[in-house]
Computed example of a mutant assay.
Amino acid sequence: MTDLRVAIAPDSFKGTATAIEVTNALAEGWLTVRPGDTVLRMPLADGGEGTLDAFELAVPGARRMPVTVTGPDGRDVDASWILLPDNSGVIELAVTSGITLLDPLQPMDAHTVGFGQAIAAALDSGVDRLVLAIGGSSSTDGGLGALTALGAVFADADGNPVVPGGRGLGAVASVDVSKLRPVPAGGATILSDVTNPLLGNAGAARIFGPQKGADEAQVAELDAGLARLATLLGTDPDTTGAGAAGGTGFGLLAWGAVIAAGADAVGDVVRAPEAVASASVILTGEGRFDGQSDAGKVPSYARSLAEQSGATPMLVAGAITAEPAGFTEAVSLTELAGSADAAMADTVHWLREAGARLARTV
């Protein structure tokens, strides 16, 4: 049996296993079958949950910077951001204002204040550049909360500050940006795997609102509020990615940030193309492989790396609901475990089993 070089480069399985845990479990399973193989562990991210982990593991000298922020439901959250050796700050919305911080969901009241507070903390430390990972959001507030934390004042018709969250969007009549903190000299890059516009049938409220608990009437109310915000901030709501993170992409664009495809941008920073160039197999994965997985998410990025290097691409996902085109082999944990509940109850175990199963196919 010829020993192989295997790159394991998955995203997190949201809510059940971090990208690092997924990587390690797949590696352990693979090595039980092919112990002589060289395994390169490279957890990736697309701007959602696990982005900080990917940067911390892949960039020598990266440092965790603890910060306590106001979570999406008003409770304090102990979070952190990453300071890179080049004096860039990486902030992840999922750990400050993410949907996994809520139980139950609060479609009208969840907000991004904590995300803005973490950005402010990085600015206070003197970073030259910001990398803003905005996947995994809990709210549809157009970034109103984050911009408020950065100094903007959103007021109602009586001149009173509106409440944070989607509910406040409907009351916004004016915005004062005179005290809004500027983007750092090196700029701010938004990492997102979402290409949706801000408004309409493909927009933030209509597409992602229901996932955050919004009913039909609330979706309509949130979309109208986002339209009001767009009028006040003057940025084009049709910009690709403006609808990301409940419109937080739009708010950050209005602030002066620029948007980049999440998985590609993270991969470039951690030098994934160079790292996997000599691999014979690239094994990737995510919690759910579906119709959106080809829109800049980690599996499509890893598959493109395999195409460039001539490696064999393989996929593991908690559930596979779309044709895994382009992958030589694909394993669904739901099918492997017998049910979604069983797969989620012991995800790490089933990831090991998936790694072993794929190793046997080589």
Rank of each mutant, 00 (worst) to 15 (best):
D3H: 14
L4H: 15
A7V: 02
A9I: 15
K14T: 02
A19P: 03
L26N: 06
E28R: 15
E28F: 07
W30T: 09
L31K: 07
V33T: 11
P35T: 06
D53E: 15
D53T: 08
L57M: 12
L57I: 05
M65G: 00
T68V: 11
G74S: 09
G74A: 07
V77Q: 05
I82Q: 11
A94I: 02
S97Q: 06
G98Y: 01
L102Y: 08
D109P: 01
I119T: 04
D124Q: 02
S125R: 12
L130N: 04
G135I: 04
L144R: 12
L150I: 12
D158E: 14
N160K: 14
P161A: 07
V162W: 03
V163K: 09
V163I: 14
G165E: 08
G170S: 13
A171N: 10
A171H: 11
A171T: 11
S178M: 05
K179F: 01
R181N: 08
R181H: 03
A185V: 15
G186S: 10
S192T: 15
V194G: 07
T195R: 13
T195P: 03
I207M: 08
F208L: 07
G209Q: 03
A214I: 03
E216F: 00
Q218C: 02
V219H: 00
A227D: 10
A227P: 08
R228A: 10
L229F: 03
A230R: 00
L232M: 04
P237R: 06
D238N: 15
G241E: 05
G247K: 05
G256F: 06
G256I: 08
G256D: 10
V258L: 00
A260T: 09
A261L: 01
G262Y: 01
G262N: 04
A265H: 12
D268F: 00
A277V: 13
I282M: 06
G291C: 00
D294F: 02
G296N: 10
G296D: 08
V298Q: 01
S300R: 01
S304A: 15
A306I: 04
A317F: 14
T321A: 13
P324V: 14
A325P: 04
G326R: 06
T328S: 15
T328C: 10
A330W: 00
L333E: 03
L336T: 14
A342Y: 01
A343M: 11
M344K: 12
R360V: 03
T361D: 04
T361I: 09
